[in-house]
Amino acid sequence: MSAPFEDIRALIYRASLTLDREDWIGFLALCAADFRYLITAYSPELRKRMIWFDHDLESLKALLDMVPQHLRRHGTLLRHVSVGMIEPAGSPDCYTVTSTFQCLHTELDGTTRLYAVGRYIDTVTMSDGRVLFLGRDTQLETRDLGIGSHVPL
């Protein structure tokens, strides 16, 4: 069976649009039961990779359920994603997808600033004819995120 390239690309783009809309339930529906979401950055200060966000599906759902109760920056995020490589991930029906992204923040007054750039290293799998996320490692180039935010990139 050939790799479902178009379905994989559609998943990556759909995920970004879903996150942009803050449709958390919709995003979680794109993830397999054993999904893990990491945000990482390499620190040249420590000369180490750092983990800044690490959630399985259950803890991600708990985090997203609490978003309305938290104080956070106003405005919206917009993710511009470009899918690069789609490669077999070693196990059947699993693929590693490397994409680059820019995330832009628009304030309530309409001012837009670059928030973060980096790469999504996604692992996707086929399940019942659907492509789902098995893992996402958001590898940041940007380390100064200003006031930050606890919503996924």
């Binding site: 983990i51 800044w52 609490m66 104080l71 995120l145 930050g148």
Partner: peptide, 26 residues
């Protein structure tokens, strides 16, 4: 990994405490 998770619950740019403090300062 556990210690990092504990740290990231409250602290760091994707935590649920540190960004709120930064919001208040700004």
């Amino acid at each position: 990994l556990t210690r990092i998770k504990h740290h990231n619950q409250y602290w760091g740019p994707f935590s649920r405490n540190w960004p709120e403090d930064a919001y208040a300062a700004e």
